[in-house]
């Protein structure tokens, strides 16, 4: 089958991914690449248009399979997003968690509800619903929407209000965890170690098995 990536006409074998086809055709690759097929690093973002279709979609080149007549273009890893700086302070007043959301992400309440983030997401997250839930103060539900986010930043590029939805989602996940996750077994073990009640004898005998 014939495909075209970044203007290069490529003959691709059946079943190959766009990234695989690009490499097999002998083209150099020093960026837009990472996990090579797992789809977790978000480096190989491409704009894809299939034969006979008007719409173009944003996808990951390491998981998208070649189809005859498909056109694709790599998307740079620069995003137009403004930094949303914050520091997860363990002593922060967790009663103010909702207020922190719009303090760090002041654009979030301006969401136009255009669904561009959902349309852009290559792993089909309900990004927009996450943003809406975050603004409404439904923080745990909002954080849950971003569980499978690979931080490819496509929603950040897509968002006309510069909300940086994936970074908002990550902020929610990080904040809720750091403020609330306190496993009892971990607390006990740390207590034991810090009081010197649990040590390691490096000279203890260890038998090899088998």
């Amino acid at each position: 089958m014939r495909i075209e990536i970044d203007g290069r006409k490529i003959t691709a074998a059946d079943g190959t991914t766009l990234l695989g086809a690009w490499l097999a055709a002998g083209h150099p690759l020093v960026d837009h690449v990472g996990c090579m097929g797992q789809g977790v690093c978000g480096a190989c973002r491409v704009l894809v248009r299939r034969a006979g279709q008007d719409e173009a979609t944003t996808e990951l080149a390491c998981v998208t399979r070649a189809e005859d007549g498909l056109q694709a273009a790599f998307l740079d890893d620069t995003t137009p997003h403004r930094a949303h700086p914050y520091h997860l302070d363990p002593t922060h007043d967790s009663w103010d968690a909702h207020g922190r959301v719009t303090e760090v992400f002041p654009e979030a309440p301006s969401c136009r509800h255009c669904d561009g983030c959902n349309n852009a997401c290559p792993v089909d997250l309900e990004v927009h619903e996450g943003v809406v839930a975050a603004v409404a103060g439904d923080l745990v539900a909002a954080a849950g929407r971003f569980e499978d986010c690979v931080m490819c930043d496509l929603c950040t590029t897509a968002c006309p209000e510069h909300i940086a939805p994936n970074h908002l989602g990550l902020f929610l996940r990080r904040m809720t965890t750091s403020l609330s996750l306190r496993p009892d077994d971990l607390l006990r073990r740390l207590h034991e170690i810090e009081r010197g009640h649990m040590t390691i004898d490096v000279h203890a005998s260890v038998e090899e098995r088998g």
Partner: peptide, 8 residues
């Protein structure tokens, strides 16, 4: 990790 917001 938990302080950095990594969940388990």
């Amino acid at each position: 990790l938990i302080q950095l917001g990594v969940t388990f």
